[in-house]
């Protein structure tokens, strides 16, 4: 709660759950979640892309919801539950159904956007599962193709033309139903 006027910046302690493990560290106020994940915790699956919230390559889940980690202050990770692409894979090393579907549909080319895409699709899955437990929230059936497209509006892919990615998401939702 104190502002420091000296050149040495104040460090802030943050504690959160990262891929189901409790972690904590001391950081500067201006550190972005993306840099914390990649540089401090050395999880390189989350990709730095545009740095402006346009491309979605840096998407992670915060309390289950997809967020651009390049536009999220790491101090606000305190007390949250954060999942990166590394946390999507099950503990035995097998792939999550989202990842399996992306592989099965050939939805990966250069792969740079893939972790962000996978996290966004998982975020949509969480949204549909959770909305049923939240009073006053809109409840729908499984996401339609149009809803999947709308949901992925913040993820850019320059290789695939999106068709296979959307196919992969659609197939996964049908399978999970």
């Amino acid at each position: 709660m104190k502002k420091t006027k000296t050149k040495t910046e104040k460090l802030h302690e943050v504690s959160f759950t990262l891929n189901e493990k409790k972690v904590s560290c001391k950081i500067k106020a201006s550190v972005l979640l993306l840099d914390l994940i990649r540089d401090v915790f050395e999880l390189k699956g989350t990709k730095p892309g545009c740095g402006e919230g346009e491309c979605g390559a840096c998407t992670v889940l915060i309390n289950g919801a997809p967020v651009n980690s390049c536009l999220f202050l790491a101090v606000n990770a305190d007390g949250k539950n954060i999942t990166t692409i590394e946390g999507l894979t099950k503990s035995d090393g097998s792939l999550h159904p989202v990842q399996e579907s992306l592989v099965a549909h050939g939805a990966v080319q250069c792969g740079f956007c893939t972790s962000g895409m996978a996290m966004s699709i998982k975020g949509l899955m969480n949204q549909y599962e959770n909305s049923h437990n939240v009073p006053g929230e809109i409840k729908n059936g499984i996401p339609s193709r149009d809803e999947i497209k709308k949901h992925l509006e913040g993820n850019l892919c320059r290789c695939t033309g999106y068709v296979k990615i959307i196919d992969a998401a659609e197939a996964m939702f049908k399978q999970e139903q």
Partner: peptide
């Protein structure tokens, strides 16, 4: 407004 990710925050 913007995108799914931005609308979350």
């Amino acid at each position: 407004l913007a995108s799914t990710q931005i609308r979350q925050v």
